[in-house]
Computed example of a mutant assay.
Amino acid sequence: MKKPSPSEREALLISLLMQLFTGEITEGQLLRTLRKDLLNMSQTDCAALVKVSRRTLSDVERDIGSPSLNVLNAIFRPFGLKAGLLPRNPALMKKLLAEDINSHSS
């Protein structure tokens, strides 16, 4: 599999984050796609990279368990991401995103 260019990586990351923010995908689906499409790594290799067990990584990808913020930050760090607070309500998230886009375009 060809390694994506920096601009392709950024475009994929932005697209996936928008899908996450609008509720189209879960955090686990985001992680699995990033691991496979950006890192081109197995769960075992990725888990070793971020220093968590393969089981923990698998649980996060399957959206089960309750990983700590430290674990989530370790797992998402290779993608330039960190855990944070976001609105749970999809309508509020869309409004927040729309306001952010409008504030950057003016």
Rank of each mutant, 00 (worst) to 15 (best):
75 I>W: 00
62 R>E: 09
24 E>G: 10
69 L>V: 12
70 N>I: 05
59 D>H: 08
21 F>K: 08
72 L>M: 14
37 D>P: 00
104 H>S: 11
50 V>P: 01
74 A>E: 09
2 K>W: 04
59 D>R: 06
87 P>K: 11
23 G>M: 10
64 I>A: 05
7 S>Y: 02
68 S>D: 07
98 A>N: 13
10 E>F: 06
59 D>N: 11
5 S>H: 04
5 S>D: 10
89 N>G: 05
28 G>R: 02
85 L>C: 07
9 R>V: 14
30 L>A: 13
97 L>C: 07
86 L>G: 05
1 M>A: 14
59 D>I: 00
98 A>K: 12
45 D>G: 07
8 E>N: 06
16 L>A: 15
18 M>Y: 05
106 S>Y: 02
85 L>N: 08
80 G>A: 14
15 S>V: 05
51 K>E: 15
27 E>N: 11
93 M>G: 05
78 P>K: 13
69 L>N: 05
93 M>P: 01
51 K>I: 08
55 R>V: 14
30 L>C: 11
55 R>I: 11
73 N>H: 03
1 M>T: 09
5 S>P: 00
70 N>L: 11
16 L>C: 13
61 E>Y: 01
95 K>D: 15
102 N>G: 03
72 L>T: 04
52 V>Q: 01
95 K>Q: 15
64 I>N: 05
33 T>E: 14
97 L>F: 03
13 L>Y: 01
98 A>H: 08
57 L>R: 03
87 P>R: 11
97 L>H: 04
38 L>D: 05
90 P>I: 15
60 V>P: 02
71 V>S: 01
55 R>F: 03
42 S>R: 06
18 M>Q: 10
34 L>T: 06
77 R>Y: 04
50 V>K: 02
14 I>C: 07
